Simulated scan of single mutants.
Amino acid sequence: MSTTLHESAAATPPTAAPRSPAAADARYDTLVATLRDIAAEHPDVVLASSLAAEDMVLTHAIFANDIPIEIFTLDTGRLNPETLGMIDTITAHYGKAIRVVRPDPAAVEQYVTEHGPNAFYESVPLRKACCEIRKVVPLRGALAGHSAWITGQRREQAVTRGELPDREHDPVFGLEKYNPLVLWTQDDVWQTLRRLGVPTNPLHDRGYPSIGCEPCTRAIRPGEDLRAGRWWWESSDSKECGLHAGNVSATPVSVVEFSKRSG
Rank of each mutant, 00 (worst) to 15 (best):
L175M: 14
V137I: 15
L143N: 00
I87F: 08
Y178D: 00
D104C: 04
T73W: 01
T89Q: 13
E70C: 08
A61F: 06
L143E: 00
V137L: 13
T83G: 08
R99D: 12
N179Q: 09
P81C: 10
F72P: 05
P81K: 09
T89L: 09
P68K: 04
N80W: 15
F72G: 06
G174P: 09
L84G: 11
C131S: 07
F120P: 08
Y94M: 09
E156W: 03
I98A: 06
A64Y: 07
R127C: 11
V101W: 02
A106R: 11
A106G: 10
V112I: 15
K128W: 10
F63H: 14
L74E: 00
D75G: 04
T73D: 06
T91E: 15
E156D: 13
I90H: 02
F72R: 09
C131W: 01
R127H: 09
A119I: 07
Q153L: 15
D88K: 13
I69P: 00
D104N: 15
I71T: 13
G152T: 06
R155I: 10
K128Y: 13
Y121K: 01
Y121S: 01
I62L: 10
P117R: 08
L139W: 02
S147C: 07
F63I: 11
V101P: 08
I87G: 07
E109I: 01
R161N: 02
V108L: 11
S123Q: 06
A148P: 02
T160C: 11
R140A: 14
L164D: 05
E122I: 08
E70M: 10
P117H: 05
H146R: 15
L164P: 06
A106M: 08
A92K: 14
V172T: 15
R102G: 07
D170Y: 05
T73K: 06
D75T: 03
H146A: 12
P105F: 00
H60M: 09
I133G: 04
F63D: 09
R167G: 07
L139H: 01
E132T: 12
L74N: 02
P117K: 07
V100M: 10
V136T: 12
K128N: 14
Q153D: 12
K96E: 14
V137Q: 13
I150W: 01
A129Y: 12
P138E: 00
V101R: 04
P103F: 01
R167H: 14
Y178T: 04
D170T: 09
I90A: 08
A92C: 02
E70I: 05
